[in-house]
Amino acid sequence: MTYATQRTTVPVTVDEDKCIAHKGCTVCVDVCPLDLLAIDMLKGKAYMKYDECWYCMPCEKDCPTGAVHVDIPYLLR
């Protein structure tokens, strides 16, 4: 079987200037009920890895520096 690489915009974005994942913070990753966020170990920043969002907001509300922003997924907007 052959697979395609399709691009998709993700609802959760991280302001890398504010993100303090490199200081040990994993709050947004921990609170996501669907386990969609991850820390990019090279950059030391959080990012949305999978587009499977319930726009439920704990990642944004619990972020200690206000770095995370949740948009309504485009298909619903």
Partner: peptide, 13 residues
């Protein structure tokens, strides 16, 4: 009806 798999009424987990 949006077609978004995770845009469910319930928490999709």
């Amino acid at each position: 009806s949006s077609g978004y798999l995770f845009g469910t009424y319930e928490n999709p987990t």
